[in-house]
Each structure stands twice: as C-alpha cells, then as structure tokens.
C-alpha cells in the first residue's frame, strides 16, 4: 500500500510526503491524518482510533461520504467533458449534493439521484469512479471526529479525517483551537486552514447545507482518483 495510504486534502499545502497526510473537512474545521510509515491503511486507522480513545473520545456509530461522477454526453466543442459530482453524507441522510468542480453546487433531496437516472442519456455515470469514505465517528467534548477509509473500486486508497468544532461557525476564529486539538492525535500532520475558508470574504462556515465540508471531501476524492491513472483505461 505504501504511498497509496496517504492523501492530502487541499489544505493549502502540497503533499510533499505522500506517506503522510490526508484529508480534511469540517464544519468549522478541517483535518488531516498522517499515515505511519510501513503501516497499512487499516493499521493506521486503528492507530488513530486508539489515540482518540486515549483522549477519552467516545465512539458514536459510523459515517460515510460518497461521490459519484457523471460525464456530460454530447458535443462539448473541443473542451473536455464536464464532470458533475453527486455526493451523499450520512450526516444529512435525506439530502444529496451535486457539484461542478469550482462551479455552482446544488443541495437537493434524495430524489435527485432518481433524476440522474432519467438523465442518463445526457449524463453518464462513471461507475468505476465512485469514491467513498467510511469509518467511525467520535465525539470529544465539542469536537466531532470522523476517521474514514477512502475506497475506490473496492480498494483502499487512503484515510480521511474530518474534524468539526461544533460551537463555532467562523473557521478563522477557532482554527488555532482546532489545530491544537488535531495535534493531540495527528502529531505534526496538521493541515493549514483549508482554502475553502480562506477564499470566503466573510469567512463563515455554512453548516446549513454543508457545502464547505463537501467541497473539501470533493477535493480530497479528486486527489485520490488521480492517484490511479491507468493509461488507456476507459471509463464507463
């Protein structure tokens, strides 16, 4: 698994050390995770669980986030086909979120998935590109931590760590606190403030529609997808 274990989310730095890193996301927060050298994804996840439990974080069930990719069919006048992503998050089980990379995003109810089936002659589902992260959800005081194994085509590709500091919606104001908390179990692998927050003029996290969280997962998943570039492979 070596360097596949790692992922980094765009938290403002490049993954110079592919073996460590990770993802992030959060309501007001972000996160990240290091993968220990020589360990598998599962071993690293176990290690993180252990560290969280040592902090006396309480395990509260599981979570998942998934992302389907759709290709726009039809003439695109020389440009690469547009990619539409449809994501789900167990934190919002009745919703789904549709996004274009860097473009508008739409929060909808679960019937949007049915609509995409109707639209199949215009938007084709790239089944092999489905990425998901599943794992355990921990609560530690006001923090929610979700450690997930990222899989694509049923192979483990890395680890995501989402840290959310629930009482605050201004990421800049609680970033130092989050950073300190993350250091307690991630050590030196703590990311920078995610770009999704630095780019916003008002700097507010939008918990109502979770767009900020899902944007970060999308960035992370895009990196995971790019790790596996097989020349000549076709997408269906």
């Amino acid at each position: 698994m070596g360097d596949l274990n790692s992922i980094s989310l765009d938290c403002g730095r490049k993954p110079e050390h592919p073996e460590e890193t990770h993802s992030d996301v959060g309501r007001t927060c972000e996160l990240h995770v290091p993968v220990a050298e020589g360990k598998s994804v599962q071993q690293t996840v176990d290690l993180l669980h252990k560290k969280l439990e040592q902090l006396s974080a309480v395990k509260q069930g599981s979570f998942f986030v998934d992302c389907e990719t759709y290709h726009a069919a039809g003439p695109t006048s020389g440009q690469p086909p547009k990619l539409l992503y449809v994501m789900h998050n167990s934190e919002m089980p009745l919703s789904c979120m549709a996004m274009f990379e860097g473009g508008p995003c739409l929060t909808a109810d679960a019937n949007f998935d049915v609509l995409m089936v109707k639209l199949k002659s215009h938007f084709q589902n790239a089944k092999g590109h489905k990425v998901e992260s599943r794992g355990a959800r921990y609560q530690y005081c006001d923090f929610l931590v979700k450690v997930g194994t990222i899989t694509m085509s049923s192979s483990a590709r890395g680890i995501s760590v989402e840290v959310e500091y629930c009482p605050c919606v201004v990421p800049g104001d609680c970033w130092n606190l989050m950073k300190e908390f993350m250091q307690s179990f991630l050590g030196s692998n703590v990311p920078e403030l995610p770009s999704v927050f630095t780019a916003k003029p008002e700097g507010l996290y939008a918990p109502a529609d979770s767009t900020d969280t899902m944007t970060q997962y999308l960035e992370l998943f895009s990196k995971v997808r790019k790790q596996q570039v097989v020349p000549g492979s076709t997408v269906r």
């Binding site: 726009a72 547009k82 539409l84 473009g103 508008p104 739409l106 929060t107 909808a108 019937n111 949007f112």
Partner: peptide, 20 residues
C-alpha cells in the same frame, strides 16, 4: 406519466445552466 419531484436549494437556475 412518470414524475420525479426534487426539492432543491436556490442555486438551481445557475446549476441548470452549468448542466447546459
């Protein structure tokens, strides 16, 4: 007739435009 109803956020017109 077949019918699919979806409740969405207010970004719908912009999103439909992006979908062409």
């Amino acid at each position: 007739r077949n019918c699919v109803d979806v409740a969405t956020s207010h970004s719908l017109p912009e999103f439909l435009n992006e979908m062409s």
